[in-house]
Design a protein around this nucleic acid. Structure first.
Length: 721
DNA sequence: CCGAGGGTCCTTTTT
DNA sequence: GGACCCTCGG
């Protein structure tokens, strides 16, 4: 088995572990995916299990595809019987197979987050809920969170009228979904969990079938996913979980790192195997990452090391403004590119999406190709959703959500008034909108006839031709073709996407045994597709730190290393918030193979106004000997260790290098905006505003720990830093 | 039915 | 700054 050669002792131990539940603590770049896929290959090729007996779970479709691809290069045999997919994909598969037991129609539709929100808004209107008091988004989170804790509406504890009302909406929403035969993302998981929990025969069937259950990114599992795994793991099969508690960055959406400790208890894990050898980065980068993450409490404990050399120091750059920061990054990117590093081998990472704009601006002016990750995905585009809505309605007339999306798109003169009447009829007769529409006359009848004709016309057609048919007869194509003026270019793009939809369907039919409409619609809901098409052009990568997880680059820039931004000030609320931010920084640092830039700006445009931030604490937590300051550290006005400098020079002459001297009283006053100061009680902060003059001079200071305060300088003891 | 205009909000995100 | 949502007037 030559795929075992080249594994280090720990990897080898993990791969060849006997059949028992195990936890593999795999650090960044330690060959996590390799261990997972090699174990599957090893299990199968040693004859311990057939592909049929394996269940492998991932979080993203991308990860599932990647693993399947790697596996197929390792194993010459057909691995068709192997179940590999996301939690949602696998639950969907089980629910389709046992739809009757799960009390779902065979062709149940899947609601994505946007559809779910729309459905909720519609329901809340019917229920007469004040959406000021109960924002639909909050209700949506409430429902998803509850379900992902494994709770149905009636199981949620309520101690106040406000929550009671939310629970009522929750219950009504689930009823509505059930009536319409639709299922949201968290419902897929919960429904599947309940199916297995209630049906002993079924549960035992799957427990007997899946000898080995393997889970990737285990630190990201939520309660419900953990419970689901527990149900599937019986007396005679084993759970093999791979994860890294230091890379847990999704607690905000319900991921529970505690699952790792719980796993070792619940599944009697003998010994936890740690993969600590990193094959990605030079030592300086790893040392920085280790030094940073050491500041987190309650870790399972792990220290990355490499046999590589030290490499370069980390480059630190302090810019006067966010625009200057962007300009610096772009300059460096171009220089490196000239030296032969491909653009696609470099990435700019940031904490929040809003930061990309100024960088994009600089890239456009410099003519550097780039690609922003995240954002709208293919199947989430408006025109695609409309096209798919026709297909969905054709398959399930009672899907009210879908009907509402297209009953007047393209416009056919059915206005809000008519729709309200339809909804009224539907409510009083307790039928779907479609049933109500059939009784209505006029333009609504035209719509009903259109859909019925589409239904019969597409019934026997292959998928791509069916789509072609509905695009034509829905008049979606004509609608966009008729677009003129400022919208014409946009419409052109939409037409191209619609054309691409037919291509996607053609590809789907080729690649999948089950090429039914239901299957394609499920595919669209569960795999929303790439956010941008041309993956093959050489372009600089721009993305949030979150979306960089799992990737690696020769050179990485981490921008906006400022208090309030990274760590984000919202993270201070939750007590574990800063720790999660630090893990985020840990993920960011460990993306770099060879070169890492850390940059921050003294002033930054945020929410339409200029902010003055302090240098990020995370930067302070990195050992000085690993850093190379490109801008002189000594003049960094945000650096508090430069006290020698501050005492030697009055801050008023400290103006050069500071962004354009904006702000009141900036000229000759001893105090100026963006100045770093210290207060005996409130600690360190930055002056963000100045008021009054001479005797009654007041300054507003943004303190790192206590927030923004106005201080009268006559009384407050402020010392410049 | 559409677009203009005003008000509000603003972390991260996959399924 | 700007995305998004709602309202209002043509």
């Amino acid at each position: 088995m030559d795929f075992l050669s080249g594994l280090n002792p720990e990897q080898h131990a993990a791969v060849t572990l006997p059949k028992q539940s195990a936890l593999i603590l795999a650090g960044a770049g330690s060959g996590k995916t390799r261990v997972l896929t090699t174990r599957i290959a090893w299990l199968i090729s040693t004859g311990q299990v057939s592909p049929h007996g394996i269940l492998a779970v991932t979080f993203t479709n991308k990860a599932a595809k990647e693993m399947l691809l790697r596996l197929s290069t390792m194993l010459p045999i057909n691995i068709r019987g192997l179940w590999m997919g996301t939690f949602h994909g696998l639950c969907n598969r089980m629910l389709r197979a046992h739809h009757r037991e799960a009390m779902l129609p065979q062709t149940f539709q899947i609601l994505d987050s946007a559809d779910q929100l729309a459905a909720l808004k519609r329901l809340m209107k019917v229920l007469n809920v004040d959406d000021e008091k109960y924002p639909p988004r909050e209700i949506q989170n409430f429902i998803s969170n509850s379900k992902e804790q494994g709770l149905r509406a009636h199981e949620v504890e309520t101690f106040d009228p406000y929550t009671r009302r939310k629970v009522e909406i929750f219950a009504a929403y689930d009823e509505q979904c059930q009536r319409e035969g639709i299922v949201d993302f968290s419902e897929l998981l919960l429904r599947c969990y309940e199916l297995l929990a209630r049906n002993q025969l079924l549960r035992e069937h799957y427990q007997a079938r899946f000898h080995h259950i393997l889970v990737d990114e285990f630190q990201d599992t939520n309660r419900l996913q953990y419970q689901w795994l527990k149900l599937l793991t019986g007396q005679h099969n084993a759970l093999f979980a791979v994860g890294d508690d230091d890379q847990s960055i999704y607690a905000f959406r319900g991921a529970n790192v505690g699952n790792m400790q719980e796993l070792t208890r619940d599944f009697h894990v003998q010994n936890v195997i740690k993969l600590e050898q990193n094959y990605r980065s030079h030592a300086n980068i790893l040392d920085a990452a280790n030094a940073l993450i050491k500041n987190n409490r309650s870790r399972l404990g792990k220290n990355l090391w490499t046999s590589e050399n030290k490499g370069e120091p980390l480059r630190v750059y302090e810019a006067p403004t966010d625009a200057e920061e962007a300009r610096f990054i772009v300059d460096e990117v171009r220089q490196l590119n000239r030296e032969g590093i491909h653009l696609a081998e470099m990435a700019v990472l940031y904490r929040s999406n809003a930061q990309s704009r100024v960088i994009e601006h600089a890239l456009v002016s410099a003519g550097v190709a780039y690609r922003v990750y995240g954002g709208l995905r293919f199947f989430e585009r408006q025109e695609i959703k409309h096209a798919l809505a026709y297909l969905r309605l054709v398959q399930n007339f009672d899907d009210d959500n879908t009907l509402l999306r297209i009953i007047n798109f393209p416009t056919r003169g059915i206005g809000a008034r008519t729709i309200e009447q339809l909804q009224e009829t539907a409510r009083t007769q307790n039928v779907s909108l479609w049933q109500a529409a059939k009784q209505t006359g006029g333009k609504v009848t035209t719509f009903v006839t259109l859909i019925e004709m589409m239904a019969s016309a597409t019934k026997e057609l292959p998928l791509p031709e069916a789509i072609d048919h509905i695009l034509l007869h829905s008049r979606l194509l004509v609608h966009y073709q008729n677009e003129t003026g400022i919208k014409q270019r946009e419409a052109q793009e939409r037409l191209e996407n619609l054309n691409e939809l037919i291509n996607a369907a053609t590809l789907f039919v080729h690649e999948n045994e089950d090429d039914s409409l239901t299957s394609f619609l499920t595919h669209a809901a569960l795999e929303s597709g790439e956010s941008q098409a041309e993956a093959n052009v050489d372009a600089l990568h721009l993305m949030t730190v979150h979306s960089s997880k799992g990737l690696e680059f020769h050179t990485v820039f981490i921008g906006g290393l400022e208090e309030g931004l990274f760590p984000h000030h919202n993270s201070r609320m939750a007590d574990t918030g800063v720790d999660e931010e630090r893990r985020l920084m840990y993920v960011a640092i460990t993306r770099a193979r060879r070169r890492l830039y850390l940059t921050f700006a003294q002033s930054r445009m945020l929410h339409g106004q200029v902010n003055y931030n302090l240098m990020s604490n995370f930067l302070r937590e990195l050992p000085e000997e690993l850093l190379h300051w490109i801008t002189p550290r000594i003049t960094a006005r945000n650096s508090f260790s430069s006290s020698a400098y501050s005492s030697a020079h009055p801050p008023s002459i400290n103006m050069e290098g500071l962004g354009r001297g904006k702000g009141i009283g900036a000229q000759n006053a001893p105090w100026h905006i963006s100045q770093a100061v210290h207060h005996a009680k409130f600690g360190e902060g930055v002056i963000v505003n100045i008021e009054g003059g001479d005797s009654d001079l007041r300054v507003q200071v943004n303190f790192r720990t206590t927030g923004t305060k106005w201080l009268a300088l006559e009384y407050a003891k402020l010392t410049p830093l």
